[in-house]
Protein backbone atom coordinates (compact mmCIF):
# COMPACT_ATOMS: atom_id res chain seq x y z
CA UNK A 1 0.00 0.00 0.00
CA UNK A 2 1.23 3.42 -0.89
CA UNK A 3 1.75 5.77 2.02
CA UNK A 4 -0.67 8.64 2.42
CA UNK A 5 -1.28 11.59 4.65
CA UNK A 6 -4.35 11.65 6.77
CA UNK A 7 -6.82 14.35 7.74
CA UNK A 8 -9.85 14.09 9.93
CA UNK A 9 -12.16 17.08 9.64
CA UNK A 10 -14.84 17.53 12.28
CA UNK A 11 -17.55 19.20 10.23
CA UNK A 12 -19.01 18.89 6.78
CA UNK A 13 -17.81 22.33 5.77
CA UNK A 14 -14.33 21.46 6.92
CA UNK A 15 -14.50 18.16 5.09
CA UNK A 16 -15.46 19.86 1.84
CA UNK A 17 -12.65 22.33 2.27
CA UNK A 18 -10.19 19.57 3.14
CA UNK A 19 -11.28 17.45 0.19
CA UNK A 20 -10.90 20.45 -2.12
CA UNK A 21 -7.52 21.32 -0.75
CA UNK A 22 -6.33 17.77 -1.16
CA UNK A 23 -7.21 17.86 -4.84
CA UNK A 24 -6.37 15.01 -7.16
CA UNK A 25 -5.18 11.88 -5.39
CA UNK A 26 -7.42 12.53 -2.41
CA UNK A 27 -10.02 10.02 -1.28
CA UNK A 28 -12.74 10.13 1.29
CA UNK A 29 -12.67 7.42 3.91
CA UNK A 30 -15.96 6.48 5.53
CA UNK A 31 -16.39 2.87 6.67
CA UNK A 32 -13.29 1.92 4.72
CA UNK A 33 -14.62 -1.48 3.74
CA UNK A 34 -14.14 -0.79 0.03
CA UNK A 35 -11.44 1.86 -0.04
CA UNK A 36 -9.03 0.34 2.47
CA UNK A 37 -9.55 -3.08 0.90
CA UNK A 38 -8.66 -1.73 -2.55
CA UNK A 39 -5.71 0.18 -1.12
CA UNK A 40 -4.36 -3.06 0.27
CA UNK A 41 -4.65 -4.47 -3.24
CA UNK A 42 -2.87 -1.41 -4.68
CA UNK A 43 -5.87 -0.77 -6.91
CA UNK A 44 -6.53 2.47 -5.05
CA UNK A 45 -3.38 4.48 -4.42
CA UNK A 46 -4.50 7.70 -2.75
CA UNK A 47 -1.89 10.21 -1.61
CA UNK A 48 -4.25 11.82 0.85
CA UNK A 49 -7.13 10.46 2.88
CA UNK A 50 -9.93 12.54 4.32
CA UNK A 51 -11.48 10.53 7.13
CA UNK A 52 -15.06 11.77 7.37
CA UNK A 53 -16.10 9.53 10.24
CA UNK A 54 -16.08 12.52 12.54
CA UNK A 55 -18.97 14.21 10.71
CA UNK A 56 -21.67 13.46 13.18
CA UNK A 57 -24.21 15.47 11.21
CA UNK A 58 -24.11 12.84 8.46
CA UNK A 59 -25.12 9.93 10.68
CA UNK A 60 -28.80 10.61 11.18
CA UNK A 61 -31.55 8.14 10.44
CA UNK A 62 -35.04 9.64 10.17
CA UNK A 63 -37.83 7.38 8.97
CA UNK A 64 -40.63 9.28 10.64
CA UNK A 65 -41.82 11.52 7.81
CA UNK A 66 -43.06 11.39 4.23
CA UNK A 67 -39.54 10.83 3.19
CA UNK A 68 -37.03 8.41 4.63
CA UNK A 69 -33.84 10.34 5.25
CA UNK A 70 -30.53 8.64 5.85
CA UNK A 71 -27.31 10.47 6.53
CA UNK A 72 -24.55 9.24 4.27
CA UNK A 73 -22.57 8.06 7.30
CA UNK A 74 -25.41 6.07 8.81
CA UNK A 75 -24.11 2.52 9.12
CA UNK A 76 -25.71 -0.28 7.17
CA UNK A 77 -26.48 -2.34 10.29
CA UNK A 78 -28.26 0.53 12.01
CA UNK A 79 -30.39 1.33 9.01
CA UNK A 80 -31.20 -2.34 8.43
CA UNK A 81 -32.48 -2.53 12.01
CA UNK A 82 -34.74 0.51 11.74
CA UNK A 83 -38.20 -0.79 12.69
CA UNK A 84 -40.17 1.33 10.22
CA UNK A 85 -37.87 0.40 7.40
CA UNK A 86 -38.22 -3.29 8.18
CA UNK A 87 -42.03 -2.97 8.26
CA UNK A 88 -42.70 -0.57 5.43
CA UNK A 89 -39.73 -1.06 3.14
CA UNK A 90 -38.62 -4.63 3.71
CA UNK A 91 -36.73 -4.53 0.39
CA UNK A 92 -34.49 -1.77 1.71
CA UNK A 93 -33.91 -3.48 5.02
CA UNK A 94 -33.21 -6.83 3.38
CA UNK A 95 -30.86 -5.31 0.84
CA UNK A 96 -28.81 -4.10 3.77
CA UNK A 97 -28.78 -7.11 6.06
CA UNK A 98 -28.24 -9.58 3.24
CA UNK A 99 -25.04 -7.78 2.29
CA UNK A 100 -21.61 -8.63 3.66
CA UNK A 101 -21.39 -9.56 7.36
CA UNK A 102 -22.58 -7.80 10.49
CA UNK A 103 -19.01 -6.71 11.19
CA UNK A 104 -18.77 -5.00 7.83
CA UNK A 105 -22.30 -3.59 8.09
CA UNK A 106 -21.34 -2.04 11.42
CA UNK A 107 -18.51 -0.29 9.62
CA UNK A 108 -19.82 0.47 6.15
CA UNK A 109 -21.68 3.71 5.59
CA UNK A 110 -24.64 4.04 3.27
CA UNK A 111 -22.85 6.59 1.12
CA UNK A 112 -19.82 4.40 0.82
CA UNK A 113 -21.99 1.40 0.09
CA UNK A 114 -23.55 3.16 -2.89
CA UNK A 115 -20.04 3.72 -4.23
CA UNK A 116 -18.92 0.14 -3.65
CA UNK A 117 -16.64 -0.98 -6.45
CA UNK A 118 -16.85 -4.03 -8.64
CA UNK A 119 -15.69 -7.46 -7.52
CA UNK A 120 -14.33 -8.24 -10.99
CA UNK A 121 -11.14 -10.18 -10.22
CA UNK A 122 -9.37 -8.71 -13.21
CA UNK A 123 -10.01 -5.28 -11.71
CA UNK A 124 -9.12 -6.17 -8.16
CA UNK A 125 -6.02 -8.23 -8.65
CA UNK A 126 -3.86 -5.90 -10.70
CA UNK A 127 -1.10 -7.10 -12.93
CA UNK A 128 -1.06 -8.99 -15.23
CA UNK A 129 -4.73 -8.53 -15.98
CA UNK A 130 -5.99 -5.98 -18.45
CA UNK A 131 -8.66 -3.72 -17.01
CA UNK A 132 -9.91 -0.51 -18.49
CA UNK A 133 -11.49 0.48 -15.22
CA UNK A 134 -8.29 0.17 -13.23
CA UNK A 135 -5.89 1.13 -15.97
CA UNK A 136 -7.68 2.97 -18.78
CA UNK A 137 -6.80 1.74 -22.22
CA UNK A 138 -5.30 -1.56 -21.06
CA UNK A 139 -8.20 -3.65 -22.33
CA UNK A 140 -10.66 -5.98 -20.63
CA UNK A 141 -9.62 -9.46 -19.55
CA UNK A 142 -13.14 -10.37 -18.58
CA UNK A 143 -14.87 -10.24 -21.94
CA UNK A 144 -13.01 -13.33 -23.17
CA UNK A 145 -12.25 -14.58 -19.69
CA UNK A 146 -13.96 -16.11 -16.67
CA UNK A 147 -17.07 -13.98 -16.72
CA UNK A 148 -19.58 -15.94 -14.69
CA UNK A 149 -20.00 -12.97 -12.43
CA UNK A 150 -20.10 -10.35 -15.13
CA UNK A 151 -22.83 -8.13 -16.44
CA UNK A 152 -25.65 -9.05 -18.79
CA UNK A 153 -26.84 -5.46 -18.94
CA UNK A 154 -25.11 -2.13 -19.43
CA UNK A 155 -21.77 -3.50 -20.58
CA UNK A 156 -19.58 -2.20 -23.33
CA UNK A 157 -16.64 -3.42 -25.36
CA UNK A 158 -14.48 -1.77 -22.73
CA UNK A 159 -15.97 -3.23 -19.56
CA UNK A 160 -18.56 -5.73 -18.34
CA UNK A 161 -17.80 -5.44 -14.63
CA UNK A 162 -20.82 -5.94 -12.43
CA UNK A 163 -21.92 -3.37 -9.91
CA UNK A 164 -21.85 -5.49 -6.76
CA UNK A 165 -23.97 -3.53 -4.32
CA UNK A 166 -27.43 -4.42 -3.06
CA UNK A 167 -28.75 -1.31 -1.37
CA UNK A 168 -28.52 0.91 -4.46
CA UNK A 169 -30.51 -1.70 -6.39
CA UNK A 170 -33.29 -1.50 -3.86
CA UNK A 171 -33.08 2.29 -3.69
CA UNK A 172 -33.62 2.83 -7.39
CA UNK A 173 -36.79 0.77 -7.23
CA UNK A 174 -38.19 3.43 -4.93
CA UNK A 175 -36.95 6.49 -6.85
CA UNK A 176 -34.49 7.44 -4.13
CA UNK A 177 -32.24 10.44 -4.45
CA UNK A 178 -28.90 11.44 -3.02
CA UNK A 179 -27.96 14.93 -1.92
CA UNK A 180 -24.38 15.79 -2.53
CA UNK A 181 -22.34 18.72 -1.28
CA UNK A 182 -19.28 20.21 -2.88
CA UNK A 183 -17.31 23.38 -3.21
CA UNK A 184 -20.17 24.87 -5.24
CA UNK A 185 -22.92 23.94 -2.81
CA UNK A 186 -25.47 21.16 -2.74
CA UNK A 187 -27.28 19.35 -5.51
CA UNK A 188 -29.57 16.35 -5.81
CA UNK A 189 -29.06 13.30 -8.00
CA UNK A 190 -31.51 10.42 -8.48
CA UNK A 191 -29.75 7.24 -7.33
CA UNK A 192 -30.62 5.80 -10.72
CA UNK A 193 -28.43 8.47 -12.32
CA UNK A 194 -25.58 8.22 -9.82
CA UNK A 195 -23.73 5.38 -11.49
CA UNK A 196 -22.41 5.58 -15.03
CA UNK A 197 -22.46 2.71 -17.45
CA UNK A 198 -18.91 2.01 -18.57
CA UNK A 199 -19.14 3.04 -22.21
CA UNK A 200 -15.69 3.98 -23.44
CA UNK A 201 -14.37 5.16 -20.09
CA UNK A 202 -15.25 2.64 -17.40
CA UNK A 203 -12.92 4.29 -14.91
CA UNK A 204 -15.54 7.00 -14.42
CA UNK A 205 -18.03 5.12 -12.27
CA UNK A 206 -20.32 7.86 -11.05
CA UNK A 207 -21.50 11.33 -12.00
CA UNK A 208 -20.02 12.84 -8.83
CA UNK A 209 -17.86 15.86 -9.56
CA UNK A 210 -14.42 16.30 -8.01
CA UNK A 211 -14.79 17.42 -4.42
CA UNK A 212 -18.37 16.26 -4.00
CA UNK A 213 -19.47 14.29 -0.95
CA UNK A 214 -22.69 12.31 -0.66
CA UNK A 215 -24.37 13.72 2.41
CA UNK A 216 -27.74 12.04 2.55
CA UNK A 217 -30.08 9.63 0.85
CA UNK A 218 -33.78 10.35 0.60
CA UNK A 219 -36.50 7.86 -0.27
CA UNK A 220 -40.13 8.84 -0.90
CA UNK A 221 -42.18 7.01 1.72
CA UNK A 222 -44.46 5.51 -0.89
CA UNK A 223 -47.03 2.90 0.07
CA UNK A 224 -45.59 0.54 -2.53
CA UNK A 225 -42.74 -0.13 -0.15
CA UNK A 226 -44.73 -2.39 2.11
CA UNK A 227 -45.21 -5.05 -0.52
CA UNK A 228 -41.56 -5.42 -1.32
CA UNK A 229 -38.60 -7.73 -1.03
CA UNK A 230 -34.95 -7.88 -1.90
CA UNK A 231 -34.50 -11.42 -3.16
CA UNK A 232 -30.84 -12.27 -3.31
CA UNK A 233 -29.55 -15.52 -4.75
CA UNK A 234 -25.97 -16.33 -3.85
CA UNK A 235 -23.46 -19.12 -4.20
CA UNK A 236 -23.69 -19.67 -0.47
CA UNK A 237 -26.44 -18.95 1.99
CA UNK A 238 -24.83 -15.85 3.43
CA UNK A 239 -21.78 -13.61 3.19
CA UNK A 240 -21.60 -13.64 -0.59
CA UNK A 241 -22.32 -11.30 -3.44
CA UNK A 242 -25.44 -11.74 -5.52
CA UNK A 243 -25.43 -14.18 -8.40
CA UNK A 244 -28.75 -12.58 -9.27
CA UNK A 245 -30.87 -10.35 -7.09
CA UNK A 246 -34.13 -8.56 -7.56
CA UNK A 247 -35.70 -5.72 -5.63
CA UNK A 248 -39.41 -6.04 -6.26
CA UNK A 249 -42.37 -4.09 -4.95
CA UNK A 250 -46.03 -4.17 -5.82
CA UNK A 251 -49.14 -2.34 -4.67
CA UNK A 252 -52.39 -4.08 -5.34
CA UNK A 253 -55.80 -2.50 -5.80
CA UNK A 254 -58.78 -4.81 -5.99
CA UNK A 255 -56.54 -7.74 -6.71
CA UNK A 256 -54.69 -6.21 -9.61
CA UNK A 257 -51.31 -4.53 -9.66
CA UNK A 258 -51.60 -0.75 -9.38
CA UNK A 259 -47.90 0.00 -8.94
CA UNK A 260 -44.88 -2.19 -9.56
CA UNK A 261 -41.18 -1.71 -9.07
CA UNK A 262 -38.40 -3.98 -10.21
CA UNK A 263 -34.65 -3.55 -10.12
CA UNK A 264 -31.94 -6.11 -10.69
CA UNK A 265 -28.62 -6.69 -8.98
CA UNK A 266 -25.62 -8.86 -9.76
CA UNK A 267 -26.31 -8.75 -13.48
CA UNK A 268 -25.56 -5.21 -14.64
CA UNK A 269 -22.78 -2.67 -14.67
CA UNK A 270 -24.99 -0.32 -12.66
CA UNK A 271 -28.06 -0.79 -10.46
CA UNK A 272 -30.57 -1.83 -13.13
CA UNK A 273 -34.19 -0.78 -13.22
CA UNK A 274 -36.40 -3.05 -15.33
CA UNK A 275 -39.05 -0.52 -16.32
CA UNK A 276 -40.57 -2.40 -19.21
CA UNK A 277 -41.08 -5.39 -16.99
CA UNK A 278 -42.68 -3.15 -14.36
CA UNK A 279 -45.11 -1.69 -16.89
CA UNK A 280 -46.15 -5.09 -18.09
CA UNK A 281 -47.46 -5.83 -14.61
CA UNK A 282 -49.76 -2.88 -14.19
CA UNK A 283 -53.39 -3.88 -14.29
CA UNK A 284 -52.69 -7.60 -14.15
CA UNK A 285 -53.46 -10.09 -11.45
CA UNK A 286 -50.15 -11.35 -10.15
CA UNK A 287 -49.80 -15.12 -10.48
CA UNK A 288 -46.83 -17.43 -10.72
CA UNK A 289 -47.27 -17.43 -14.49
CA UNK A 290 -47.52 -13.66 -14.92
CA UNK A 291 -44.64 -13.18 -12.51
CA UNK A 292 -42.49 -15.53 -14.54
CA UNK A 293 -43.49 -13.69 -17.73
CA UNK A 294 -42.36 -10.44 -16.14
CA UNK A 295 -39.06 -12.08 -15.35
CA UNK A 296 -38.65 -13.07 -18.98
CA UNK A 297 -39.32 -9.50 -20.07
CA UNK A 298 -36.77 -8.25 -17.55
CA UNK A 299 -34.09 -10.48 -19.03
CA UNK A 300 -35.16 -10.24 -22.68
CA UNK A 301 -32.37 -7.90 -23.69
CA UNK A 302 -29.61 -9.61 -21.74
CA UNK A 303 -26.25 -9.83 -23.48
CA UNK A 304 -24.72 -13.06 -22.28
CA UNK A 305 -21.11 -14.19 -22.21
CA UNK A 306 -19.50 -17.61 -22.16
CA UNK A 307 -20.03 -18.30 -18.46
CA UNK A 308 -23.04 -16.24 -17.41
CA UNK A 309 -25.81 -17.24 -19.82
CA UNK A 310 -27.53 -19.31 -17.11
CA UNK A 311 -28.52 -16.08 -15.41
CA UNK A 312 -31.22 -15.41 -18.01
CA UNK A 313 -33.24 -18.41 -16.92
CA UNK A 314 -32.24 -18.04 -13.29
CA UNK A 315 -32.96 -14.32 -13.36
CA UNK A 316 -36.45 -14.79 -14.75
CA UNK A 317 -37.20 -17.12 -11.85
CA UNK A 318 -35.63 -14.82 -9.29
CA UNK A 319 -37.89 -12.03 -10.53
CA UNK A 320 -40.82 -14.42 -10.40
CA UNK A 321 -40.10 -15.43 -6.82
CA UNK A 322 -39.40 -11.86 -5.77
CA UNK A 323 -42.70 -10.64 -7.15
CA UNK A 324 -44.60 -13.40 -5.40
CA UNK A 325 -42.88 -12.68 -2.09
CA UNK A 326 -43.59 -8.97 -2.54
CA UNK A 327 -47.23 -9.46 -3.42
CA UNK A 328 -47.59 -11.70 -0.40
CA UNK A 329 -46.69 -8.70 1.71
CA UNK A 330 -48.72 -6.16 -0.26
Amino acid sequence: MQSFSYARPASLDSAIATFAEGGEGTRLLAGGTTLYDLMKLDVERPERIVDINGLAELSTIDTSGDELVFGALARMSDVAADPRLADEFPALSEALWKAASQQLRNMASLGGNLLQQTRCAYFRHGEPFACNKRSPGSGCSAIEGLNRGHALFGGSDACIATYPGDFAVALIAFDAEVDVAGPDGERTIPVSDLHRQPGDNPEAETVLMPGEIIIRIRVPADAVGRGSTYHKIRDRESYAFAVVSAAAAVRLEAGVVADARLALGGVATVPWRAREAEHSLIGTALTAETARAVGEIAFADAVTREHNAFKVELGANVVRDALLIASGRA
Binding site: R119, A121, H125, S141, G145, R236, S238, Y239
Partner: peptide, 25 residues
Protein backbone atom coordinates in the same frame (compact mmCIF):
# COMPACT_ATOMS: atom_id res chain seq x y z
CA UNK B 1 -10.07 -22.75 -7.78
CA UNK B 2 -10.76 -20.69 -10.89
CA UNK B 3 -7.90 -20.55 -13.34
CA UNK B 4 -7.86 -18.32 -16.39
CA UNK B 5 -5.69 -20.36 -18.73
CA UNK B 6 -4.39 -17.22 -20.42
CA UNK B 7 -2.68 -16.12 -17.21
CA UNK B 8 -2.24 -19.11 -14.93
CA UNK B 9 -2.39 -18.60 -11.21
CA UNK B 10 -5.70 -18.51 -9.38
CA UNK B 11 -8.30 -15.89 -10.22
CA UNK B 12 -10.47 -16.26 -7.14
CA UNK B 13 -7.55 -16.16 -4.74
CA UNK B 14 -9.29 -14.82 -1.68
CA UNK B 15 -11.93 -15.85 0.82
CA UNK B 16 -14.65 -13.72 -0.72
CA UNK B 17 -14.44 -15.47 -4.08
CA UNK B 18 -13.11 -18.92 -3.16
CA UNK B 19 -16.17 -19.94 -1.26
CA UNK B 20 -15.93 -22.19 1.75
CA UNK B 21 -19.02 -22.94 3.82
CA UNK B 22 -20.25 -20.32 6.25
CA UNK B 23 -22.39 -20.94 9.30
CA UNK B 24 -25.64 -20.41 7.37
CA UNK B 25 -24.69 -23.20 4.95
Amino acid sequence: GEVDPRYGGVLNADMAEYLVPVNAD
